[in-house]
Design a protein around this nucleic acid. Structure first.
Lengths: 174, 174
DNA sequence: TTGATTGCAAAGCATTTGCATGCTA
DNA sequence: TAGCATGCAAATGCTTTGCAATCAA
């Protein structure tokens, strides 16, 4: 039973519209990059996307992927996220619920969550200080269930240079 | 009426203790860097601190400042923060209330705030997913009161490359 | 005396830019 | 045809590393 969302443009339409409005041009590279980005439901870096694109068209350069991801972000299709390892990850943004991240400092697992209560308090806090809130970023680090059982070392902090070893995406509703 | 905190070691003691425990050595550079860091109640980058240190001792190198900031972080005296401009800022950590940041995307102003309610919900959320929380980062971006009156441009997003023009620290209790 | 620390220069990374060439509208 | 887009190489900005000399314990 497929539920068809009406009244929503799909990502490709959004992209073409943005390109037109901004007086930019549609190219084969941009189409390919968008297509691969859309079918990859994970947090990926420009580098990651670059290699996926390479498989289909080795002539596409790093630079174009970087520039296109910025473009997708401006078009509202992608969102930049940072997990503390000094890399910029991108995730789908359009038609995707806003969410925050819970990151395991042992194995790098990432759980997405959404808390309406926290959202409301954030907005309230911004207003309390006279701000009109535009966006926010909440990241919680900790040790996940699996790692609590296998590891008994001291908790690595962001500063200690712990590198995520795996990055699992788990979508969890409200 | 000065309130003397008893039962709390001061930062310099903490630092020396950490150095001893780790089998490291006390040096003039480390002392100087710590001292300047402590008297600067602002968010600063390694670069910023480097120039402050330069004024007192031009022989100190960039590298040492970087390394010492890492050391201070490990000792629990400093905390790394990122505001979205791809730089690592440091702020005091020991004996300082934990707090989060509200950042103006127009002028770069930073307001520090603390919300026990949000804190509690964050911990609850982590536990809900089986995580033992270690630390977190909450950043709210928006347009501050001053900028709402002077600016009527579109809201710059993190991705659009808006650069903070001023960085004001405002400490606000609970 | 031993081994940690320093500072310089060089290397690393992720990301951006200059520019000649290519391609869309 | 005009001028945006591309891809390479080079530049950038922040941070780390190699290494010989220096210095604390």
């Amino acid at each position: 039973m497929t539920k068809i969302k009406e009244g929503y443009k799909n990502e490709k339409e959004i992209f073409l519209e943005h390109i037109q409005k901004a007086g930019l041009r549609r190219t084969a590279q941009r189409d390919l990059i968008l297509e691969i980005f859309l079918k990859t439901e994970e947090h990926l870096t420009s580098e990651d996307l670059y290699w996926l694109v390479q498989k289909q068209d080795p002539s596409v350069g790093h630079t174009t992927v970087y520039r296109t991801l910025k473009l997708l972000t401006e078009a509202g299709l992608a969102r930049e996220v940072r997990f503390g390892d000094n890399k910029t990850y991108y995730e789908h943004h359009y038609n995707h619920e806003h969410h925050d991240h819970l990151i395991c400092t042992e194995c790098g697992k990432v759980v997405e969550f959404f808390s309406p209560e926290i959202e409301a308090m954030q907005d309230a806090t911004a207003h309390k200080f006279g701000f009109v809130p535009t966006h926010h970023s909440l990241r919680l680090w900790g040790i996940c269930e699996d790692c609590q059982q296998t590891t008994h070392e001291s908790h690595p902090s962001m500063a200690s240079g712990a590198q995520p070893r795996v990055r699992v995406k788990t979508v969890v509703g409200s």
